[in-house]
Design a protein around this nucleic acid. Structure first.
Length: 851
RNA sequence: GCCGACAUGGCGGAAUUGGUAGACGCGCUCGAUUCAAAAUCGAGUUCCUAGUGAGUGUGGGUUCGAUCCCCACUGUCGGUACCA
């Protein structure tokens, strides 16, 4: 196709229109307060997950979501909204730095090259972004406010009464000591085992570990001093506030599972140590099974292990602990389901019945969850059951399942037995009674645990936001706000040091802030910039605030019942990372009074992955990657946009088919030829088929208005593939018609415009219209044109279609039934049978039941 | 294992949420146009043993009627995994 003339001259007019939109700033969104800002219009904030500008450029997965939001954005503009539809770059990150290490080129250079390429590619697809609002997370003007938000976190604590972040100064007034205050900050220093990757030379968040492991990097546990963010304080709110959001249930479930709330009790057991008696707290979700606890397990790292281990067991315990510490997470988790453990020689006392139970250590108990100690109830817990079976520990029944169910290892609900004061109680009541007993006897209490860990926030990298932190005499403090942004120094050697200080430690001059103060050398993770970028779009150039109060109130406020981003489209890969982190930051900023909503994203839609033509995930190594540039070159931007939407439902995983692109390109060419024809010289000229003189054909009027109706409804429902098929039906009708009334063709161009903006604007121009389609009002359909005077009724005999009859649309049930019964073909099927029942669905069908 | 989603022609997918299964597109077949081809236009295209036939992953159920609702199962994909 590329060697000959294109079926319609998209190669000429697409770039012309892109140039014009850019020059005229057609899709500029006025700033709140600008002379041309109309505050009376409702707002619509439609957001794409901004890309990481990789060296590989755009792949066809990017334009899938971007086209969907572009259609919605353009549609909303045409229906009288102020639309905020921006784009930017999530430009900090490891790949840029790895590239810098390899080539010695500063990451800002490759970042610039990559963003320029991404911008060019996006512009070649004709997206209606307001490029005046483009942001880049690595810009000093952006870094400044990322660091400012970090300072807000640093200067806040979580108030347990109000369940909100409050200024740390309140604690100072209450007379807290410096150490106590540092323990309360939402951004704090912690020395704890973290995920350290030796070959990346950095630590990683729990959420990131799998991703990098999958790329072949090693990750090990190692205790390090790190900046953490206290996201765990928001665990409950992060679960609760999910409910009213218009998000896919699967994403809500994913986040809820990740946060992992479980409700139960903490119980205190006493252990006879070698020198004295110790108290150990265990967490259980099944306090009703306390009487079934036949042994106890401590995590190998538990602090009490050395205190209680008897001299006979000491050697065995020590070698077990050292074996565990060298095991990787994989060996301890995924690969090794086989239970292992060692008896400490010590005994604990079960508080409810005074029974002495042996205390073991085993690596199936994790130090990081609950208290790092459990009471083992092998009768009613799968893991404990497996362990007890292996080491021949007693297994007691304390829950009676319903009849016919084996009790051993039964983890469901039932009735408590062999459990003293709990006997006869249903599990639910037994839990309550057990906790009441624990409270009354001061042996325990209610407890809710979360799987969610605090967020490990520091990285040992160069290409990230430095912390706005200074160290003085081993204490940290923030730099003055006036000194923001704190930028990395220019360096030639970006290599990881292999030490937890990171490459910035090599910038000796930069570190020396003053004689007494040194800079923090860690940097923030890539997530930092993406946690708040949606806010910056509302007011991207403000140097006084991260977002002006006015812009925040208009774009993020509660007005029109749609606070925050109205529609957010992106991939599922961010279900628990970006989307959780951003919600957390948003809530902190909300608590501190900087924002007026408590959730950032009202509606979330995940586009489905686009697979290669072979049905496999696109990947360089398989060689099934489709390059959008080539598709645009061969079929045009409109065809690519249209195909991405026509493939199937937006949210579904679907394979790419180049033949399908050809199909939609053919459709666009058909639209072109409704209005245009080729003359002898092979030039396109306006044909007279579309004409103001054309008589209004009833069928064309109907199909056009059906199309307006369906496309409108389908855009609202984000069912773009069916909208396109309706427009194909309409085009086929135009093609078949002798002539097409100009009015109908114009209306058709309007509804096609958000999908194929170049072609439609070009035809609108060729039709002699002055006003751009994108600046016109969305058409409305006329109900009257859709109604037919006669409707087709299906006649079934015993549920099988046997005839179709045409009746007046207002025909009575009786008339329809009579017509159906007397239909020739129906009669032949009724022969010899008696009619038992007749169902008439007006306007649809008649079903005659006979035998 | 657990959680979630999905299963419809040769292919991508439609079906007003209980009312004509297969819209629209791809592919294929035939025809028109052409010296010929491409492109374009038109007709056809679920399957078969061709019937008063079968048919929406399998088996059952509810209903006058089920792709849609209920029960059981199978398969595919995504997430997660010793979280007590």
């Amino acid at each position: 196709m590329s060697d000959r003339q294109k079926p319609f001259p998209f190669d000429i007019f697409e770039s012309q229109w892109q140039t014009r939109w850019e020059k005229d700033k057609t899709f500029r969104t006025p700033q709140v307060g600008d002379a041309d800002f109309d505050a009376t219009k409702p707002k619509y904030f439609v957001l794409d997950m901004f890309p990481y500008p990789s060296g590989a450029g755009l792949h066809v997965g990017h334009p899938e979501g971007y086209t969907a939001t572009d259609i919605i954005g353009r549609y909303k503009r045409m229906t009288g909204h102020n639309v905020l539809h921006p784009m930017g770059w999530d430009a900090f990150g490891l790949p840029a730095e790895q590239h810098a290490i390899k080539t010695g080129e500063h990451p800002s250079i490759s970042t610039k090259i990559n963003t320029d390429n991404f911008r060019r590619q996006l512009k070649s697809l004709g997206f209606a972004y307001d490029w005046d609002r483009e942001i880049n997370t690595t810009d000093p003007g952006y870094v400044k406010w990322t660091q400012w938000i970090f300072i807000q976190l640093y200067n806040s604590y979580f108030c347990e009464e109000s369940k909100k972040a409050r200024p740390i100064s309140e604690l100072e007034q209450k007379g807290y000591s410096r150490a106590q205050i540092d323990d309360e900050r939402l951004a704090f220093i912690s020395e704890a085992p973290v995920n350290w990757s030796p070959d990346l030379g950095t630590v990683l968040a729990n959420e990131e570990v799998e991703e990098w492991k999958a790329k072949g990097h090693t990750v090990e546990r190692r205790p390090l001093k790190q900046w953490m963010l206290r996201i765990t304080k928001y665990a409950q709110r992060l679960i609760d506030d999910l409910d009213p959001l218009d998000w896919p249930d699967s994403i809500k479930a994913l986040q809820t599972n990740w946060i992992g709330k479980s409700v139960g009790a903490e119980v205190e057991f006493e252990i006879e140590g070698t020198k004295k008696t110790h108290s150990v707290t265990v967490f259980t979700t099944r306090p009703d099974t306390l009487f079934g606890a036949t042994y106890m397990v401590l995590a190998p790292e538990h602090a009490l292990v050395t205190e209680i281990t008897t001299s006979e067991q000491k050697e065995a315990i020590e070698s077990y602990i050292s074996a565990c510490s060298t095991k990787s997470d994989l060996e301890r988790g995924d690969l090794n389901k086989d239970k292992s453990g060692i008896f400490t020689g010590a005994y604990a006392t079960n508080p409810v019945n005074g029974e002495k139970i042996p205390v073991w250590i085993a690596d199936y108990v994790m130090m990081g969850y609950g208290t790092g100690a459990i009471m083992a109830v092998p009768g009613h817990d799968e893991r404990d059951f497996e362990f007890a079976t292996k080491f021949d520990l007693p297994i007691l029944q304390v829950v009676q399942p319903k009849e016919g169910v084996e009790w051993q290892g039964y983890t469901g609900n039932g009735t408590a037995i062999h459990s003293g004061f709990l006997d006869g109680l249903k599990t639910k009541d037994a839990k309550k009674a057990a906790i009441k007993w624990l409270l009354d006897n001061k042996k325990g209490t209610f407890k809710t645990n979360f799987k969610l860990r605090d967020w490990l926030f520091s990285r040992q990298r160069y290409w990230g936001e430095p912390f706005p932190i200074l160290w003085e005499n081993g204490e940290h403090r923030t730099v003055c706000e006036s000194e923001l942004p704190v930028l990395q120094p220019d360096m030639e050697d970006f290599k990881p040091t292999g030490s937890p200080e990171g490459p910035l430690a090599k910038a000796t001059e930069w570190i020396e802030y003053s004689e007494t103060s040194k800079r923090e050398t860690n940097t923030m993770p890539q997530w930092a910039g993406s946690c708040w970028y949606y806010l910056r779009y509302c007011d991207p150039n403000n140097s006084e605030r991260f977002i002006s109060k006015e812009a925040e109130a208009y774009w993020m406020g509660e007005e029109a019942k749609s606070g925050g981003v109205d529609l957010y489209v992106g991939g599922t890969e961010h279900a628990v990372l970006h989307l959780l982190y951003a919600r957390f930051w948003h809530k902190v900023l909300f608590d501190l009074g900087h924002l007026s909503t408590n959730e950032p994203f009202q509606k979330l839609v995940n586009q489905g992955l686009i697979l290669g033509e072979d049905g496999q995930k696109m990947s360089k190594s398989i060689g099934n990657v489709v390059n959008p540039d080539e598709v645009v070159e061969q079929y045009g931007a409109d065809a690519l946009r249209l195909y991405e939407m026509f493939m199937g439902p937006l949210t579904q995983v679907k394979p790419w088919q180049m033949k399908g692109v050809e199909g939609v390109a053919r459709f666009l060419a058909k639209v072109w030829r409704v209005a245009m024809s080729e003359n002898q010289a092979g030039e396109w000229e306006w044909s007279n088929k579309v004409s103001t003189e054309a008589s209004t054909d009833k069928a064309l009027l109907k199909v056009t208005h059906e199309t307006i109706k369906k496309v409108t409804e389908d855009i609202e429902a984000m069912s773009f593939n069916t909208a396109i098929s309706q427009m194909m039906i309409c085009t086929n009708a135009f093609t078949k018609a002798e002539s097409v009334p100009a009015e109908l063709f114009s209306q058709f161009l309007l509804v096609l415009n958000p999908f194929a903006p170049h072609l439609t604007e070009e035809l609108n121009r060729l039709q002699g219209k002055q006003t751009l389609l994108s600046e016109q009002t969305w058409p409305s359909y006329v109900e009257e044109y859709l109604i037919e005077s006669e409707v087709q009724i299906v006649v079934q005999v015993n549920g099988k279609v046997r005839a179709k009859i045409m009746v007046d649309k207002d025909a009575s049930k009786e008339t329809v039934e009579e017509l159906a019964k007397t239909h020739e073909n129906v009669l032949s099927f009724l022969e010899g049978n008696t009619i038992r029942k007749v169902i008439v669905v007006p306007g649809r069908l008649v079903n005659i039941v006979a035998n």
